[in-house]
C-alpha cells in the first residue's frame, strides 16, 4: 500500500491545527468589555469615596465588590467556561504577567490615592480610580494580546 504525503498537504494540516488551537486560545482570553466594566466600577468606587459620605462610600464599595466578583467568576467559571487552555501554553511567564498586571494596577491605584490624599488634592479617590480605569482599558487588552502571543508560540512548539 502506498500513498504520498506532499509538503503542501502537511502544511495544510499544520495550518488547520493552528486554527483549532487559536479557537481554544481565543475562548480563554478575557473579552475587552470586561476591562471597561471593571474600569467603570472602579471610577464609581472612587466617586463614592470622594463624597465623604459613609453611606455613599459603603454603597459604592458594595457595588464594586459584588460587580467585580460576579464578572470575574462568570468569566472564569461561568458561561464562557467551555474550555480550559492547557497549562503548558500559558506557562509560568503568562501566569507571572497576569499576577504582575493585577499587582501593578491595584498597587498603583492605592499608591496614587495615598499620594494625592497626602498632597491634599481634591477628589483624590476619583482621580486615582480614573488612572486605574485607564490602566485597565489600555493594559487589559494589551495583556491579552501578550498572552495570546505567548500561548500561540507555546502551541507552535508542539
Amino acid at each position: 500500500m502506498t500513498n504520498a504525503m506532499k509538503p503542501a498537504e502537511a502544511r495544510k494540516a499544520l495550518a488547520e491545527m493552528e486554527r483549532r488551537q487559536d479557537q481554544v486560545i481565543e475562548g480563554t482570553l478575557v473579552p475587552n468589555w470586561y476591562w471597561w466594566a471593571v474600569a467603570l466600577l472602579s471610577v464609581g468606587l472612587g466617586v463614592g469615596v470622594d463624597t465623604r459620605d459613609p453611606t455613599a462610600t459603603a454603597v459604592a464599595a458594595g457595588i464594586f465588590a459584588v460587580g467585580v466578583s460576579v464578572l470575574t467568576v462568570w468569566i472564569a467559571f461561568g458561561g464562557r467556561r467551555h474550555v480550559k487552555v492547557h497549562q503548558r501554553l500559558l506557562g509560568s511567564r503568562g501566569a507571572g504577567l497576569i499576577v504582575g498586571f493585577v499587582w501593578l494596577v491595584v498597587g498603583g491605584t492605592l499608591g496614587l490615592a495615598y499620594v494625592l490624599e497626602a498632597a491634599n488634592v481634591e477628589y483624590a479617590a476619583t482621580l486615582s480610580t480614573l488612572a486605574c480605569a485607564i490602566a485597565l482599558v489600555v493594559g487589559g487588552p494589551a495583556l491579552m494580546r501578550r498572552l495570546r502571543g505567548i500561548m500561540r508560540r507555546q502551541a507552535g512548539g508542539g
Partner: peptide, 18 residues
Amino acid sequence: RLSIVALLGAADWAEFRF
C-alpha cells in the same frame, strides 16, 4: 479527527458543545 485532536491538544479539557 485532526481538528478535534488539535483543539484538544491546546486544552486541558473542552466541553462537547465547545
